Amino acid sequence: MPTPNPEALAFLLSRRSRPAKTLAMPVPDQAMVETLLTAAARTPDHGKLEPWRFVVLTKPALTRLAALVPARGAALGIAPDRIAKAQDQYAMADLAVAVVSSPKASDKIPPVEQVYSAGAVCLALVNAALAAGWGANWLSGWPSHDRDFIRDGLGLSDHESIAGLIHIGTETSAPPDRPRPDLAAITTWMTA
Rank of each mutant, 00 (worst) to 15 (best):
Y116Q: 06
A185F: 02
D152C: 01
P28L: 08
F149C: 04
N137P: 00
R15G: 07
T35F: 00
A174H: 11
C122H: 08
L156Q: 08
P60Q: 06
M190V: 14
A93M: 05
V115R: 06
S106C: 09
V126Y: 07
T35N: 03
D148L: 09
A129K: 03
N127R: 01
Q87F: 04
T187D: 03
D182R: 08
H46T: 09
A129F: 08
A40M: 08
R15C: 11
P60R: 07
A128K: 04
T63E: 15
P26V: 08
Q30W: 00
A79P: 07
A67N: 13
N127D: 13
G169W: 04
R53H: 14
L37V: 08
A66Y: 10
T58V: 01
L13R: 15
M190E: 09
R151S: 15
L76K: 15
P175N: 13
R15N: 11
Y116C: 11
L130T: 02
T35H: 03
A184K: 12
G164S: 09
L154G: 04
A75L: 07
D146K: 05
T187F: 05
T63G: 01
D148M: 02
E34I: 00
L76R: 14
L49N: 13
R42W: 05
M92H: 10
K104P: 05
R64S: 13
R53V: 03
H167R: 09
P51C: 14
D45H: 04
R42D: 01
A105E: 13
L65P: 14
V55K: 14
I166R: 07
A129T: 04
A131T: 00
